[in-house]
């Protein structure tokens, strides 16, 4: 079995109002020196596939077709 972690983040230049709100909250809590905060998503996926290359190709296809909206988001796949 292969386990993977997929990280989806907003592309540069895409406004992230939730990240902004978190950034302000952190500053308000007294954490000094907080720069930009951007919110993203993490997916931990288990695959019965044993071929790493095949698994990676499948995971990328999952990102392109469902897990990420490539209009506004980037993704990275890490097999753990």
């Amino acid at each position: 079995m292969i386990k993977a972690r997929i990280t989806v983040t907003l592309k540069n230049g895409v406004l992230d109002p939730q990240g902004k709100a978190i950034e302000h909250a952190l500053s308000g809590m007294g954490f000094d020196g907080v720069g930009q905060v951007r919110q993203g998503k993490v997916f931990d996926v288990e695959l019965s596939e044993s071929d790493k290359a095949k698994a990676e190709a499948d995971l990328k296809a999952m990102c392109d077709r469902l897990l990420a909206n490539t209009v506004i988001e980037n993704y990275s796949v890490a097999i753990t």
């Binding site: 406004l15 109002p17 939730q18 909206n69 209009v71």
Partner: peptide, 17 residues
């Protein structure tokens, strides 16, 4: 429709949250 690719762009969280 935008998620299906029938229209371009994306609809994101309102800026006011």
């Amino acid at each position: 429709l935008v998620e299906a690719g029938l229209l371009p762009g994306a609809l994101m969280r309102n800026t006011s949250l």
